[in-house]
Write a protein that binds this DNA or RNA. Sequence first.
DNA 1: TTCCAAATACGGCATCTGTCGTATGTCTTC
DNA 2: GAAGACATACGACAGATGCCGTATTTGGAA
Lengths: 224, 224
Amino acid sequence: MNGDHMNRPLTFIIADDHALVREGLKMLISSMDNMSVVAEAADGEALLEQVAKTRADLLLLDLGMPGVAGIQFISDISELVPRLKIVVLTANIEPRTVRAALEAGASAYLTKDGDPEELGEAIEAVRKGGTYLARTVRFAISDPSRNSRPAAAADILSPVPLTRREREILALVAQGLTAREIAERLGISPLTARKHRENLMGKLNLHSAAELTAYAVRLGLPTA
Amino acid sequence: MNGDHMNRPLTFIIADDHALVREGLKMLISSMDNMSVVAEAADGEALLEQVAKTRADLLLLDLGMPGVAGIQFISDISELVPRLKIVVLTANIEPRTVRAALEAGASAYLTKDGDPEELGEAIEAVRKGGTYLARTVRFAISDPSRNSRPAAAADILSPVPLTRREREILALVAQGLTAREIAERLGISPLTARKHRENLMGKLNLHSAAELTAYAVRLGLPTA
DNA sequence: TTCCAAATACGGCATCTGTCGTATGTCTTC
DNA sequence: GAAGACATACGACAGATGCCGTATTTGGAA
């Protein structure tokens, strides 16, 4: 074992909206050599605050947090504090999301149902300046040609950037609101709300409110 | 009270589909006095196996597991092994679900975003033969000691048991299928599929496919 | 300043959905 | 064998949705 990383402990920020999960992760990380958790956050706002206040090396980020508009949040942070390595930790294994997270600046992508050992492997890889992908999502990137998905261009096509408004609409759809309710909530015409929804479905290659809802909930958008 | 609980450690089964979360919970519990985790399970089948094989005192059950048809699973287990105390651990805070879980035989109901201290409090309460409700869901139950007597108007919605077919339909709705697609999948008439869906919404007091989908996904039904 | 993407808004049309009925066959259970 | 729950099936009607257009305003980038 090389002793160079024995000097200064690696410092972590843990961002997850479930306190119990945070606690568990904290114990996991603290039980490793030379690792210490210096901050935690349960929502996007608190996270930004902690990122600014502490000088952590590594951010363990649950993509399913409230106030964390998914991918957008990653690019914001990695632009703001490039020094901070971001390890995404989520249940979402959609190729779209994995690609987008990496392109947004994440250094690693772990899934919650993966082998806990992967956490250590990911940390090691990231510490060395590399990247790491959970075994369960490697197929999403490594070999696109062997991916026998029928859904062609639309599905694959990379980050699928949603506009701010579209993300807002998506979150409301995920709560089960109709176009009319969304329109009322946002103070716009129902027809406009419908159009946004249409555009969303077009971009995501989905074809019903139910599919859109399932997608949004899986993405971790607030559903209540 | 007999002091025999100091001799033998309380034994746990941890059931959660996220390996990382399981690991975290295991460390949390192992760090407590006289507690030990004797088994874990990532899906319903494995859980039943472990329940039969080990003689654990306490089951920490994530309601969002695949193969765990929510509430039904709780009544099955508590009927099979009444000795085993069930602590529900989930993100779902719907009054309906809380009530249903308790009536199905759960001894405690914790939420993942609750204070980690609640885990200890719940275990203590359950060990003594009592029940425990997370602070965030206490509002859901007016009087936890009585559970068979309807009291308020809210009882119209109370723990409505879903039929097997309805749970099946619910899972398909959660995947974004339309009535017609569900009908094809199950080999029944689209009108029948619609009727099942209607009944579902009636029982759950929901009013759109999107709401139904959000509900199903939150319940942890498979969404892909 | 020009240009473009984003947000706004509207309409038509086929289809699906939500809500109300009614009805029949098959089980279990009493 | 009667009662009840469950699964099946159909119809009507209003409203919402999915999909196709078009068009105006606006704010920021080139």
